[in-house]
Design a binder for these strands. Structure first.
Lengths: 353, 353
DNA sequence: GAAGGATATCGAATCGATTCGACCGGCCGC
DNA sequence: GCGGCCGGTCGAATCGATTCGATATCCTTC
């Protein structure tokens, strides 16, 4: 191995062909005679040439084979949420035809690092819904990079992968209502970036789209349900929420609509802690339809959302756009799944609040 | 916005300066007079130029600002493990000085996509320990890309970020032994890629380094502990393991050494299920020292490993290497943390098996 | 007033591969 | 026997920015 890595020109010289021919051997864009291919490959082998430099190739081609995935959160935390994890997986799938890799990016524009502004992206997928989203969107659009937004309001002409959050949550609420529950509480996802857990104030501004939509769905059936908003989608947060909900035995909900399965799992644990049986004393619904690790024997009544499908759709949309096409927004639908965490309202229910 | 995006040459022309000057305005590598900077920036603004094309820049610079992170698993699953998640976070931190992004890659070489072979990487971090690791390593080395291996045996001259798995696990075993336990079982991580849960056969070949090392540590104290190997580091897997361990009331371990906190959490749940009190009837230790979501009120007796630190170290090592330095291998140390899941062996323990 | 320095800007080469039209034999068919 | 076609190869331009030595300008300082 020399002081400098071999280039395709070196290989071509060694093989006694022109650089263009050598290039074609590697890219396969044009037929090459078997003999020539052999000589080029042998030359490459002997020079320790392992293939074209991706940097140079991407410059010339105008493609890098990299799709940026932008999270609004702390990057590690993004993956604590199984829904996002699944989505990522679908996404990996969806961009596979491009042969693209996924570059993780945070949306703090200030970040010293290779961010949205400086990464060699072919396209970007924005996840989430905070205010930052707008800024990120502007950056990406200015760069002229195709972009897709998942679960966030991108406005105008940006393809959007969505979910029928409102309708789905309404469905769960109806189910609970049909079972006779009247004292119902909602455990919501964060209301805004940086939200600290607690009861939702009456004048709260909800900037997180998902939270707002799901809440609206619940409100269609139970207009004045109390709302506790968690600080994130974690079991521990659900536990906190549940403790708050079940604190006062005299004024306790008989059903809890949690905005995520993880929250629901926490609520169930809080119920157990408070000596309440699920679903006899209190019914709990989730949202997402993920398999919560270690929740057995409970099977959540929940809304199953096609997370991986969402990711795949995002990937496909991005693929289409990169290839010059026009991608349409897609709205996915949740399916209601009844488990064993909801049941009839207890007879002895106190007065409706 | 024109048919073609503006280049820095266009901007330079518009501003009446040379391309080189325009370039330095953006890179800041050389002082530029305030007036010139202003003109260039204005020109850029008016042409809708949003900064240098990363592809071209990376070609010339020989740097892409991208570090590949290679997992041996299904990509989504990689993030289900909090340890890896934390590691990723540390890694993001560690490469921050480079201003680098993290490109997720699978190590299935066959993958149609932009993989290890074709991505514009400045460096690579390999995670894990399966056989694939070797192949990935070869690819990366052939390309002449700096590489660091985390928790895997890379052999020779590749810097390695490791952990004192064996010694740490021995420590936990000693602790349990000191408490008087004699009938002890181990719940191990997978023995090899694709392992299905079950009792470990006597002639098993353990290809996963972490599993092997931790087991060796346990064996130093309890040479003939029975070993159940799980199919992954999940609470649900721990639950399965626990059920198997506690199935026979007449021959039941009084202590369980789990190779991860998640497994331990599952074992505890299985114990509860079997009507056993922790730690009165059975003691359980974990490994990792992560906060298991929703395990309260238990506090695991476990070995805390500096996951984020590991990631950070890997990031720093990679940074050093990119800058032409020589990075050393680093061995991290776990710290034993006693929680409330271990206690004295029950008096009524049956005969030592 | 001239030499010496500091500063800002410019020119031109370079990074490494890809691509497209031109070119060149040879083979086929009429 | 000759025009046409085709598979294969070659040249040269191009992708867009960076970099470094050279140059020009202006300010000190003796």
């Amino acid at each position: 191995m020399n002081t400098r890595r071999a280039t395709i020109a070196d290989v071509a010289r060694e093989a006694g062909v022109s650089p263009s021919t050598a290039s074609v051997v590697f890219s396969g864009k044009t037929p090459v005679s078997e003999a020539t291919r052999g000589r080029v490959l042998a030359a490459a082998e002997s020079l320790g040439y392992t293939g074209p430099d991706p940097r140079a190739a991407s410059l010339r081609r105008g493609r890098s084979g990299i799709v940026g995935v932008v999270f609004e959160e702390y990057l590690g935390a993004a993956f604590l949420d199984p829904v996002k994890t699944l989505m990522m997986d679908g996404l990996a799938d969806g961009v596979a035809p491009l042969g693209a890799g996924l570059l993780l990016l945070r949306d703090d524009i200030a970040g010293s690092g290779a961010s949205l502004t400086t990464a060699p992206l072919d396209a970007a997928v924005l996840i989430g819904c905070s205010g930052h989203l707008r800024a990120s969107l502007d950056v990406v659009r200015a760069r002229g990079i195709p972009v897709v937004v998942v679960e966030g309001d991108a406005g105008d002409d940006v393809p959007r992968i969505g979910l029928d959050n409102r309708e789905a949550q309404r469905q769960a609420a109806s189910h609970v209502c049909a079972l006779g529950h009247r004292r119902v509480a909602v455990v919501a996802l964060p209301l805004s970036a940086g939200w600290e857990r607690g009861w939702m104030p009456a004048d709260a501004r909800i900037t997180v789209d998902v939270t707002r939509e799901r809440l609206a769905g619940a409100r269609e059936v139970f207009p004045d349900a109390r709302v506790w908003a968690a600080a994130g989608s974690f079991i521990a947060e659900g536990l906190e929420a549940g403790r708050a909900l079940f604190a006062d035995p005299t004024d306790r909900p008989t059903a809890v609509l949690a905005q995520s399965d993880l929250l629901a799992a926490g609520v169930i644990r809080a119920a157990e802690e408070a000596g309440l049986r699920v679903p006899d004393d209190v019914s709990v619904t989730g949202f997402d339809g993920i398999a919560v690790d270690g929740l057995a024997p409970y099977e959540l009544t929940t809304l199953h959302q096609p997370s991986a499908e969402k990711g795949r759709a995002a990937g496909r949309a991005v693929t289409t756009m990169i290839e010059g096409g026009q991608a349409a927004s897609i709205q996915f639908t949740c399916t209601f799944r009844e488990g064993n965490t909801t049941g009839p309202a207890p007879e002895s229910a106190g007065p409706t609040r």
